[in-house]
Simulated assay, not measured.
Amino acid sequence: MVMIELGRLALMAVPVCGVLWIFWRWSLGAGNALYALGRMLLQLSLIGYLLLYIFQAKSGWIILGVLGVMLFFSSWIALRTVGDRRRKWFFVTLISIALGGGVTLGFVSFGVLDLKPWYAPRYLIPLAGMVFANAMNSVSLAAERYLNERQEGRSSPEARRQAMNAAMIPVLNALFAVGLVSLPGMMTGQILSGVSPLIAARYQIMVMLMIFSASGLSTALFLRWVSAKS
């Protein structure tokens, strides 16, 4: 596997600066994009060191604590675009992602991979990250679309249907494109590290099914509970 030197990694600043310049020229909020990039660099740098400790953990409680933190922040970030509804819908979002993502993660870790021990952090943490992140994105799209549909006078069932459809478009597009347009991150990473493409393909199939399930279940639960209260 090619080791990326920091000096070479810094070369990626060139196209990034090009995009930031476009943001500035088009008044799209270059400051917000720069802040997002800065947070990404800081968070990934810190998580690299943190994962070294987590991967050596021998306690399931530590791993459950990490999953709890991931779940909390994914639920809060999912409602970033709904304004004053954020606090009102937070608990519903937390439960929706916990159930939809948790059930899916359980099938993967206990059924498909049969992890030993069940909290094996090298597998469970990255998989949980993919589950919660994709559920977060789908719920976020659904929340914004549902709110807009209701504000335009749509009935609750119709708004829910439109929101579910909008939330699943990125997931369905990914299913259509995988293998034809893109080789997703896990498959690419495994191939680069020397794993057989056939084995990498199996893992990627598992991941795509996992993402579809977690996104669909979490979004449906969220919309069901939100629409029942509106």
Rank of each mutant, 00 (worst) to 15 (best):
N165M: 10
R80Y: 14
V131L: 07
L115K: 08
R122C: 04
A200T: 07
L141P: 01
A128I: 02
F90N: 02
G100H: 09
Q56K: 15
V14N: 01
L113K: 02
L37A: 13
M3K: 12
L37D: 00
W24Q: 14
K88C: 03
F73E: 03
P15R: 10
N134G: 11
V19A: 04
S75E: 02
A98K: 09
I205P: 03
L11Y: 05
A36H: 07
T104H: 05
A174G: 10
M164P: 07
I54R: 01
T188V: 08
A201Y: 07
E158D: 15
K116T: 12
M130H: 02
L44I: 13
L180Q: 12
A33W: 11
Y203I: 02
L51D: 02
I199F: 15
L64I: 09
N173D: 14
T188R: 12
A228H: 06
D84N: 14
R224A: 10
S74F: 05
A36P: 01
D84Y: 11
S27E: 15
P184S: 09
T188I: 12
S213L: 01
W61E: 14
V131Y: 06
V82L: 12
N165I: 04
L6N: 14
A163P: 06
R202A: 05
P197Q: 08
L192M: 06
L67N: 03
F73T: 10
G129V: 10
A167P: 03
T93F: 00
V131D: 05
G60F: 06
G185S: 11
L11P: 13
W24D: 11
V2F: 14
F72T: 00
I211N: 00
F107R: 08
Q204T: 03
I169S: 07
M187E: 11
P184G: 02
F73Y: 11
K88W: 03
L147C: 08
G29L: 01
V207Q: 00
A159C: 09
V2P: 12
L192H: 00
I211V: 01
C17L: 15
L79V: 08
S74C: 14
Q56A: 15
P197N: 08
F110G: 02
V103L: 14
A163E: 05
V103H: 10
L127N: 03
L42T: 04
P126W: 07
E149Y: 01
W76N: 11
Y53Q: 15
I47N: 04
L209F: 01
